[in-house]
């Protein structure tokens, strides 16, 4: 039964056995391709297994889900250094802390330091661990170390 598969999937996630988690998620999806939890688990497990190519192709080949996979898609594009496409994927996203953080990292890699720093300034009130490390990197790279 599907409950047993999810119990197994959950156990693999808890043990950080991400490749096995992908296999179990695939078992669920083979009988129910529209199972959103299984699809989300598969994509996240692929990312955490550092299999970015498969994570992206899974997102792109999947049918429409209620869950918005755009952040995960943008993250995969960022990891592949497809920076323009990554920013494009985030364009329609609400500016929540996760989206702003990813945008600032993309802008940093694109060398757009002032825009990058602007997002870090907006993020300061969000209390994100270690944010200041990237903020300082942006300021230094923008030639604004004195700030």
């Amino acid at each position: 039964p599907i409950e047993d598969l999810f119990t197994s999937l959950n156990r693999h996630i808890e043990r950080s056995e991400f490749e096995q988690a992908v296999k179990v998620a695939d078992q669920v999806l083979s009988t129910n391709p529209s199972d959103e939890d299984a699809m989300r688990c598969k994509v996240v497990a692929l990312i955490k297994a550092d299999n970015i190519d498969d994570a992206l192709s899974t997102i792109q080949s999947s049918q429409k889900f209620t869950f918005d996979f755009n952040y995960l898609k943008a993250y995969c594009l960022y990891r592949q250094n497809r920076l323009d496409e990554a920013l494009e994927a985030l364009k329609i996203q609400e500016n929540n802390p996760a989206t702003m953080l990813l945008k600032s990292q993309i802008l940093y890699r694109s060398g757009e330091m002032d825009a990058c720093v602007e997002f870090y300034q907006k993020l300061q009130k969000s209390k994100i661990d270690s944010l200041e490390i990237n903020f300082v990197a942006g300021l230094i790279s923008a030639g604004r170390a004195s700030e």
Binding site: I2, E3, F6, T7, L9, N10, I13, E36, D37, R40, C41, V44, A45, I47, K48, F67, Y71, L72, Y75, Y78, P97, A98, L101, L102, Q105, Y108, I128, D129, S130, L131, I133, N134, V136, A137, I140, S141
Partner: peptide
């Protein structure tokens, strides 16, 4: 080059499977 962390990664999480087991 200054050190930059992949903080966006920390926002990637599994859904809760609590009510699926």
């Amino acid at each position: 080059n200054p050190i930059v962390l992949d903080l966006a990664y920390n926002f990637i999480d599994f859904p809760s499977l609590e009510n699926r087991m």
